[in-house]
Computed example of a mutant assay.
Amino acid sequence: MSFANYNSQHFTEEEFARIQDALNTLKQVCEKYLVNLSADERQKYGRVNEQNKLLVNKVYDYHKHQAELQAPEVNWEEFDKDYISRQRLESITNLLERISIGLYNAKIMHDHDNYQAALTDYAYASYKAGTLDPNFEKKYKDLKQFFTKGKTKNTNKES
């Protein structure tokens, strides 16, 4: 039984340490900006859908290009700061999401490689247990618990 190593890209210790350092730095810089919303608060404040974002963008455009038409009751300095922060946060979260998805997909491939190797090792232990080698008999019995009757051993589902 053979398997393919679908992902042969592996982080070095140095790369992993650099990533951990960068993530810790990112966390420290972002700490004061992080907000925990309750489910009710998320429902209450999360109503700015794509259509409403278009409204905000159009109001911002009028504010920047035809200031004489803006409402005096709005704190436009704060509006500008919120608008810029929103753009920056969206840019950061989009980048983090792309990185997260790519890393998660790489993890899936490594999970698959590990699972296929584990199946190969289990098959070998099963073969060797048949030779009455007590060490392999123990290993085979120990691994056998992960296989239930009626299911095939070689499934491609994520482990």
Rank of each mutant, 00 (worst) to 15 (best):
D111C: 11
L119F: 04
T148L: 07
K138R: 06
D111T: 10
Y104E: 12
Q51S: 05
N114P: 06
E97W: 05
T155L: 01
F79Y: 12
A71L: 09
H63N: 07
Q43N: 08
K58Y: 11
H65P: 03
Y60R: 03
Y45W: 02
R88T: 12
S126Y: 10
K128T: 07
L54C: 04
P134G: 00
A117F: 02
L95Y: 09
A71C: 10
A125Y: 00
D113Y: 05
V74G: 02
S126D: 13
T152R: 07
S100D: 07
R88C: 13
N52P: 13
K64Q: 15
H63I: 03
E97K: 14
Y140M: 02
Y45V: 05
Y140I: 03
P72R: 11
A39L: 11
F147E: 10
P72C: 01
I92D: 04
A118W: 00
Q87D: 08
H112M: 13
Y122C: 00
A129Y: 08
V56S: 00
I99A: 12
K128I: 15
F146L: 07
S100A: 07
E68I: 13
N49I: 04
N52W: 14
L96I: 14
T155G: 06
G130A: 00
N75E: 02
V56D: 01
R88A: 15
N154K: 00
K64S: 07
N57K: 08
E77S: 15
A117Q: 08
K153Y: 00
S38H: 01
I92W: 15
Y62L: 09
L89T: 10
I92R: 02
E97I: 11
T131E: 10
K44E: 07
T131V: 07
G150Q: 01
T152V: 12
K151Y: 05
S100W: 01
L55R: 14
N49S: 06
N114M: 14
Y104T: 07
I101Y: 06
N57C: 06
F79E: 01
H110Y: 08
I99G: 03
Q116E: 09
A129R: 02
K153N: 00
G102E: 13
Q66L: 14
N49L: 02
D40Y: 05
E77W: 15
K139M: 12
K151P: 15
V74W: 01
K107L: 14
K107V: 12
Q116N: 05
L95I: 09
L132W: 07
E41P: 06
R47I: 10
H63D: 08
Q66I: 08
K128F: 11
A129F: 14
N52E: 13
K139R: 06
